[in-house]
């Protein structure tokens, strides 16, 4: 087997006495769409923060195509090729939607500028379903549209790996269907994705494989169907989850 695109090796993050990520290891192959699930507070967002460089791990290694990235500043990791969305959507409120997406194209892994960046941003806006909305200030947009902006911005960096933190959360049923289709498309085009998600239907239908965390520990890793049937996983969810 070739080198995995992303290797998480015995990664740990402690906030004082609280161990949010407890010696977790897993790998992500190129082109894979991996689900990362677990009850609230199990350390999923922290895991993504460690990969994207928002936080640096207390110990452990993270390798992207064999290159160590753990503990590097976020802008360096972004340039190497990691892009993300945020659990609580983060747009650039004083900028237009086009500029929001251009922001993702100029400094990251992609580094395009000028007309090239504008063209790319327009294409991506169209791809996430915001064609014709280029000049709208994002502050005036609905929640799902802001999430689309965030996704387009992340894609604009043409990352090796895309991290989605509950990107489907808060969407109504019809928006959810559109959102899932969008993720499926992006994955089908060969983009490697880790998606943190609470919507189990989405995990079942989109992700071949998923990793389950509970209280900072990885408790399961494998084919989604079997992992979701695993009694330990079910118990973890039943403990405090409402939609399992």
């Amino acid at each position: 087997m070739s080198v995995p695109l992303l290797t998480i090796n015995q990664v740990r993050k402690a906030f004082g006495g609280l161990v949010a990520v407890n010696d977790v290891s897993f790998e992500v192959a190129k082109g894979e769409l991996l689900g990362l699930i677990g009850p609230n507070g199990s350390g999923k967002t922290t895991m993504l923060n460690l990969i994207s460089g928002a936080l640096s791990p207390t110990s452990g290694n993270i390798l992207l195509s064999g290159q160590p990235i753990a503990g590097l500043p976020a802008h360096k990791i972004a340039r190497i090729g990691v892009a993300r969305t945020f659990q609580l959507v983060r747009v650039l409120p004083s900028m237009s939607s086009l500029e929001n997406v251009v922001a993702g194209a100029v400094f990251g892994h992609n580094k395009v500028w000028g007309d090239e960046a504008l063209t790319l941003a327009r294409d991506l806006l169209e791809r996430v379903g915001l064609k014709g909305r280029e000049d709208v200030p994002v502050a005036a947009m609905t929640y799902i549209d802001q999430k689309r902006i965030e996704l387009a911005r992340a894609l604009a960096g043409n990352p090796h790996i895309l991290l989605l933190d509950e990107w489907l959360a808060g969407l109504n049923p019809s928006e959810l269907r559109i959102g899932m289709e969008l993720i499926r498309e992006i994955s089908a085009q060969g983009r490697t994705i880790i998606m943190v998600e609470h919507v189990m239907d989405a995990i079942r239908s989109l992700c071949q494989r998923c990793v389950v965390m509970n209280s900072g520990v990885k408790i399961a890793d494998g084919k989604s169907a079997s992992v979701l049937a695993d009694p330990e996983v079910v118990r973890a969810y039943l403990g405090d989850e409402d939609d399992a």
Binding site: A74, A78, R84, L92, P93, M95, E99, A103, H109, K111
Partner: peptide, 14 residues
């Protein structure tokens, strides 16, 4: 301008 809007986003776009 990106930094002025959201410094965390700025870092994460590189």
């Amino acid at each position: 301008r990106i930094i002025g809007n959201d410094e965390a986003v700025a870092r994460h776009v590189g």
